[in-house]
Nucleic acid binder design. Sequence first.
DNA 1: TTTCATAGTGACAAGGTTGTGACAAATTAG
DNA 2: CTAATTTGTCACAACCTTGTCACTATGAAA
Lengths: 230, 230
Amino acid sequence: MKALIVDDDRTLADLLAFTLRRSGFEPYLAYDAPSAMNLFNQVPVEVIVLDINIPGAPGLKDGFDVCRNIRKISEVPIILLTVRDDEEDILRGLDFGADDYVQKPFSPRQLVARIKAVLRRSDSARIQNLAPYAHDDVMFDPNLREFMRDGHEPVSLTKLEARLLDYLMLNMGQVLPTEMVIDHVWGPGGGNSEMLRQLVRRLRKKIELTPDDPVLIHNRPGVGYGFAIK
Amino acid sequence: MKALIVDDDRTLADLLAFTLRRSGFEPYLAYDAPSAMNLFNQVPVEVIVLDINIPGAPGLKDGFDVCRNIRKISEVPIILLTVRDDEEDILRGLDFGADDYVQKPFSPRQLVARIKAVLRRSDSARIQNLAPYAHDDVMFDPNLREFMRDGHEPVSLTKLEARLLDYLMLNMGQVLPTEMVIDHVWGPGGGNSEMLRQLVRRLRKKIELTPDDPVLIHNRPGVGYGFAIK
DNA sequence: TTTCATAGTGACAAGGTTGTGACAAATTAG
DNA sequence: CTAATTTGTCACAACCTTGTCACTATGAAA
């Protein structure tokens, strides 16, 4: 899967390229707005990671312009990298057709998760190479959306349930802030905490042995949700 | 929360001071580069609003120099005021370690929003990236908001408790003035000493072995609170 | 010692968060 | 097109968090 990475911080861009390649992507790099457009016109990439603050040229001065121009001619998913947590920047980016945003600083792993979430949300593309997760006596195959526990029948999950479980298991052992989980499942601004609570409830009912006393999906009040490990 | 405002336009500086004071800040004013450095060395400000075009002196000729000099010795957030929307000015400023910039003309309200965003960012960036604290037989993980003591069950802290403990442990061994602690926990103008007393009480109850005779969080009457070491 | 500001304690209430059940709307499958 | 499934919304309860009040204890200065 070809991915276009646009960032003028070459160290960061290289790091992202390395991580994406390890995750099965084929990264292409650009360091400024014009060469980003150039590369996009030559290579049929399937996802774009785009820093907002990149050097530009007259008529194409930053990442916003790149985003807007690409959106004119393509539906390819775009993930913005924003430096400040300025609502305005984010809203502007989403207005210009971006699919998601990630705030610096972020871990490459987070970005990969985000990319996968975007790809999964956009019905056009689909990730084929997702490896099944395993933990203790349970297993989850995101492709089949099938959850299995040793000695039990497999359980099939819904789209949203699978998205949630995928995100939680990808970050196994961590507690993920509620807001982040919501963004990953429903996309930025697409969900709310009520919806997440219901989804968690329904997922627990399917995969926990004792839904009343959940072991796999636990909550840390005031923070968020995590998969296993305390 | 002490803020340093540096601008040679006294009318504007006064307006900013007024607005910031109304937003809970305690503004200090300087009208040129040398007096800005002077004031900075005397007052422990927690954020700086710095015009680029200010009168200077040999070796300290404008706002850029002030920015660079302050950055050599402090991590305090700096917000630049630029007159033109000259990319070069902005990039140069960010290179010199500024955290954000605002282009004149701007509304005071916008500036306050920007300041708060920068403060939030520097806070959360630190909390997300810093390893857990350790001291003697206790440990605190700000990510999970979890406090642990050897041989005891982990205790989960609330948002405010975690913010307080984070601040105290970050400055371990020092006594932090009450006002500063309040500002860091509740933000500028958001808290009072009564609330801090309650918070300290609740935190002590959770993490001290003998809350009646606190060892970790101690008070110096008339000054403030400190973590460990006397 | 007296006085006053600062610091600690207990209790209460408003508001927020999480989990739950029921139901309606939307989507999907046959 | 209809029926089943999935998803979103509402209402409610249990619990936790947080600000506030009233009161007591402490310590420094007059």
